[in-house]
């Protein structure tokens, strides 16, 4: 018996060593280290990674953002200024300059305050994709710089969003508003144009014309997004199986950190917003979790019982052999 345990120890040792080597160790070596800033948007990483000629501009920008953040915003005045935003940020808005402007119904709840300030001040800088707009191209939301330019106005609009657009938000809303205009999620029927509508096929021809029309509209929208972004952003149906939690939180916080030069803008989610998005990604990417957790203890319990009975059986047969 002692000898068997010793042999088992040797087998277990080498098995665990093998596991450690090919899993935690190898994966730790394979992926570059990226610092996570806990969804604090202070531009630190942007400035550090900026080329020499852009460093100063970025430093000034984020310093000014910090100053505006200290101002006390007036939500009532902010609401009046916000009226300008609704011209684009509305339900059913068309593609503008490559992407559909997001609905801001939950903006105060899911986006960080500092990020919102930065975004109104200079969208390309805030989302850390200013490298994309070096030539004649301008950011689709670039006009905001001339529309809301005074620090107090910016503080007011953000105060309004934080007070009036910060109600309860569902995981679905968080995903749709923060990610869903670029990233489809086919496992939950989400497209860049919204949820796939229920349609019916013509019984005589067997063809669903409305579904085809919707497909075409989606294809056209995807072409616009792909043209603007350089490629079609990936479907996120099972991204939580394909990327680690750390990868997702760091790429959401600062896309450049994981994919240098990417066209993906930072969307400025706060911790709550990120958690809601992750919850939704779990719904589409790992829907069996609940069932696994419910069934697991029963199956394992069965085999524990099985093993005990097998041991008793074995003991009864082997008792007199030695």
């Amino acid at each position: 018996m002692n000898k068997e345990l010793k042999i088992f120890g040797v087998v277990a040792f080498f098995t665990l060593l093998l596991y450690w080597g090919v899993e935690p160790f190898a994966h730790g070596q394979m992926h570059k280290h990226v610092d996570f800033n806990n969804f604090v948007y202070d531009g630190k990483a942007d400035i550090a990674a900026a080329p020499a000629d852009k460093k100063e501009a970025k430093e000034t920008f984020w310093k000014e953002v910090g100053e505006i953040s200290k101002l006390k915003g007036d939500p009532v005045a902010g609401e009046a200024t916000y009226a300008m935003c609704t011209g684009c940020h509305m339900e059913g808005a068309p593609n503008m300059g490559g992407v559909i402007p997001p609905v801001l119904d939950n903006a105060g709840a899911i986006y960080d305050k500092n990020y919102l300030i930065a975004l109104i001040k200079d969208p390309a800088m805030a989302s850390n994709v200013d490298h994309k707009y070096a030539d004649t191209m301008t950011h689709p939301m670039g006009s905001i710089k001339s529309m809301v330019s005074q620090p107090q106005d910016i503080a007011n609009v953000v105060a309004y969003l934080k007070e009036k657009k910060a109600g309860a938000v569902t995981p679905k809303q968080a995903y749709e508003q923060a990610c869903g205009r670029c990233h489809a999620n086919r496992y939950v029927n989400w497209t860049q144009l919204g949820t796939v509508p229920k349609t019916e096929k013509n019984l005589a021809t067997g063809i669903d014309v409305d579904a085809l029309k919707f497909k075409q509209a989606v294809a056209e929208e995807q072409a616009l997004v792909a043209d603007y972004m350089g490629k079609l952003p990936p479907d996120l149906s099972i991204i939580i199986r394909a990327r680690s939690h750390h990868f997702l939180e760091t790429i959401v916080e600062n896309p450049q950190s994981q994919l240098a030069g990417t066209a993906m803008p930072r969307v400025g989610l706060n911790e709550q917003g990120f958690e809601k998005v992750m919850e939704y990604l779990e719904v589409s990417g790992d829907p069996s979790k609940v069932a696994r957790d419910a069934l697991g203890p029963w199956v394992i319990g069965f085999f524990v019982l099985f093993t005990i009975l097998a041991y008793l059986w074995k003991s009864s047969l082997w008792r007199d052999l030695h």
Partner: peptide, 30 residues
Amino acid sequence: LSKDVFVMGVYFILFFYLVFYHFNFAMDPV
């Protein structure tokens, strides 16, 4: 066989632990 069945039992405990709680190593993220 009785000893085999006992060893299998121990093995199945590990096996189904992995099936329910620790399966990512067997399904590469890429």
